[in-house]
């Protein structure tokens, strides 16, 4: 159960995931890396915006909102 890998936008609000892989390429990939989204980073899903997208995440002590286009390209392992 805990081994399950899901994309970040599917992570339940309030729970955290361990980054396993970035499937984004090129410029998006670099931007995500610059924000500190590297392998084994813990990301917590904080809240959805009123219309459900984007979603705000806690990434290395900063709060960053990502659209589903980007967050679906971050694969995480659900941890808690």
């Amino acid at each position: 159960m805990k081994e399950k890998i899901i994309s970040l936008n599917k992570l339940a609000i309030g729970s955290s995931g361990l980054v396993k892989q970035l499937t984004a390429q090129g410029n998006i990939r670099r931007r995500l890396l610059d924000l500190g989204i590297t392998k084994d980073t813990i990301i917590e899903s904080l809240r959805k915006s009123p219309k459900g997208d984007p979603i705000a995440f806690q990434i290395r002590s900063a709060v960053i909102a990502l659209r589903s286009e980007e967050s679906s390209k971050i694969l995480v392992q659900w941890i808690e």
Binding site: N27, I28, R31, L32, L35, P54, A56, A62, V63, I64, A65, L66, R67, E69, E70
Partner: peptide, 11 residues
């Protein structure tokens, strides 16, 4: 199409 978007929500 829309390009990459990341938005920081500062304290």
């Amino acid at each position: 199409l829309p390009s990459t978007f990341t938005l920081e929500l500062p304290p």
